[in-house]
Design a protein around this nucleic acid. Structure first.
Lengths: 221, 221
DNA sequence: ACCTGAACACCGTTCAAGT
DNA sequence: ACCTGAACACCGTTCAAGT
């Protein structure tokens, strides 16, 4: 296996583009990031990036991995494992909610080495606690499932609530009333009164819905 | 509230665009759908759509609502509620996995009346079963959380596994090794052997990770 | 080895103009 | 009321050319 002689130079440049991408994302969001914007924020031609990343998707994958690395979700290992798992899940949830513009691509991104490192650390901890590798793996994915689901729910509910007053009154089929209290209130006034529940849901930490159930269920094994 | 005199004409045209959008999505995926493609598939100018939808996002929201309506996830109500909930969740999961090109925007889409109707039906069923509205609402969101998380996981794992052999050998920082057995095997050969677990995970129905835990936990209430 | 500029084939959306 | 065509301000990516 031939090792390249001068990784530092290349590595630095790569990192510079990733940092610039992170900054652009902070300013305009992931969905409006463009190769041209990242490049010009570095005072460089857009084509310069193609020496470091074969395409936009690869740049985004590398940038997401940098986000994951920075999140640093693993708490001290002297906690009881239930608390440890909870802390890990909450760390991931908070990191993703904070960088919420990544949410749209959660299901469609390639994962990098940092994501793999997280998997490893999680499974290692639970293995040390007496879980089988099989169990630990399933537990990890169950936690991830609940974290991702929670983040999507959080983003979605936030989105529904922030809908501007969509010039209602003429409720033709063309008006897409959002999933809000108002919708359900008007749509079915004699049905069960869901409104306060949904209203509350907007405030609630979406993670606390499923996570305790998962941990509780793990504890039985 | 003034009711418009001729909804059928308008409604039909709207529906035609939505149907065309569904067809385009089936062919090229949500992420490559464009106003121009939808319009030209109807043999019409791209600008024609702006009389029916204010922008692309609104067209997509209407189309997603049509998908939700067609999924028709509610099984007969004579099932025990645990089975009923499981069937609903599985129906949603399957529908979303089948139309998997929607996954990238799961957290960023506005929801339409069909989504609200689903919420209503779910809460109504659980209320009739003795749950409080509060409990039923939380149960609904917990199920949705697990479904969305499962779909994202499914899409993500599929994505990682289908990565082409990325000309490995020169493992510089610039190579983003995907989250696969290979990555973990090479990266940490002396650690716990996670590979078989991850390999299995690719086959496993991602929904079965968290869903039983949720239902089990609900049954205790 | 790295960067540039021009160019290609697309986008979403606006606007004036047609019927 | 509905549709069109041209135009604007963007995209990602390719390619030949520069140093």
């Amino acid at each position: 296996m031939p090792k390249p002689a001068h990784p530092p130079r290349t590595s630095l440049n790569r990192q510079a583009f990733i940092d610039a991408a992170l900054q652009v994302i902070r300013e305009v969001g992931v969905e409006k990031l463009s190769m041209r914007k990242v490049a010009s924020s570095l005072g460089v031609s857009a084509m310069a990036m193609y020496k470091h990343f074969p395409n936009k998707e690869e740049l985004l994958a590398a940038t997401l991995d940098a986000v994951i690395a920075k999140a640093d979700v693993f708490p001290p290992t002297d906690l009881p494992w239930q608390d440890w798992v909870e802390r890990v899940a909450r760390g991931m949830y908070n990191a993703l909610c904070a960088e919420s513009s990544w949410v749209p691509l959660l299901g469609s991104m390639r994962l990098g080495p940092q994501a793999a490192r997280a998997t490893e650390a999680f499974v290692e901890r639970l293995s040390a606690e007496g879980f089988s590798t099989e169990q630990a793996g399933r537990a990890y994915f169950a936690v991830i499932q609940v974290v991702i689901g929670g983040v999507c729910l959080h983003a979605s509910i936030t989105k529904q609530l922030q809908v501007p007053s969509t010039t209602e009154g003429t409720a033709t089929d063309s008006k897409l009333t959002p999933l809000t209290l108002r919708h359900l209130k008007e749509g079915n006034p004699e049905g069960p009164n869901i409104s306060p529940t949904l209203e509350t849901m907007g405030q609630v930490d979406q993670l606390t819905l499923g996570l305790p159930m998962i941990i509780e269920s793990l504890a039985l094994q």
